[in-house]
Computed example of a mutant assay.
Amino acid sequence: MLFLAGSTEWKTSPAAHRLAVEARERGLAVHMGRVNSRRRLRIAQAFGCASCDGTYLAFGPDTNLPRLLAWMNELHTTPTLFGDEA
């Protein structure tokens, strides 16, 4: 498994994307840490991440759960950022 962690700049960089693609080509799953926004969730999808984590839901779950569920629904109806299949 490849775990994409570190600064936002690093995790969302072209270099991190290339590593994720390489990991997937080698049959490895990719996980992204600290995914706490719609934008970051879409980036994780575009990178082909099999999983991600974050604390977004822990802060205001009554408000944030409906938002998070809407983001997840969007992932299935919207093309990825890089045009590749997630």
Rank of each mutant, 00 (worst) to 15 (best):
S7Q: 05
N36L: 04
G60I: 01
L65E: 10
A5F: 14
A29I: 03
T12V: 06
F82V: 00
A20W: 00
T78I: 08
G54H: 01
Q45L: 12
L68E: 00
R42S: 09
A23P: 01
A29Y: 14
G48W: 01
G54W: 01
H31K: 04
S7A: 13
V30H: 01
M1R: 13
L2V: 08
L81P: 06
G33N: 09
N73I: 02
E85G: 09
V21S: 06
E74M: 03
L28R: 00
L2Y: 02
S13D: 04
G54Y: 00
G60C: 04
N36D: 15
F47D: 02
E22P: 02
S51N: 01
S13E: 04
E9K: 05
R34M: 15
W71D: 02
A29D: 09
R26Y: 06
H17W: 06
P61Q: 04
S51Q: 03
S51F: 01
H17M: 11
L19N: 07
R40V: 05
D53Y: 09
R26M: 12
E74V: 02
R38F: 05
P79S: 05
A46G: 14
Y56F: 15
H76V: 05
P14W: 07
E22C: 07
G83H: 07
G27S: 08
L69I: 00
E74W: 02
G48H: 01
A46R: 04
A44Y: 03
V35M: 03
A16D: 03
P66L: 09
N64H: 13
S13G: 07
A58W: 15
M1D: 15
A86G: 10
F3E: 09
R38H: 12
T77Y: 05
L4R: 03
P79F: 05
N36Q: 08
A70N: 14
S13I: 06
K11Q: 15
Y56R: 05
R39I: 10
R39D: 13
L41G: 04
G54T: 02
A5Y: 13
N73Y: 03
I43Y: 03
L69H: 12
E85I: 00
F47M: 15
L4E: 07
R40K: 10
T12W: 06
L81R: 13
F47G: 07
M32W: 06
V35S: 01
F47H: 09
W10A: 15
E85W: 08
I43A: 03
G33M: 10
T12Q: 13
H76Y: 09
R42L: 10
T63E: 13
A20F: 05
L75G: 06
A5T: 15
L41C: 07
S51T: 05
A23Q: 04
V21I: 10
N64D: 08
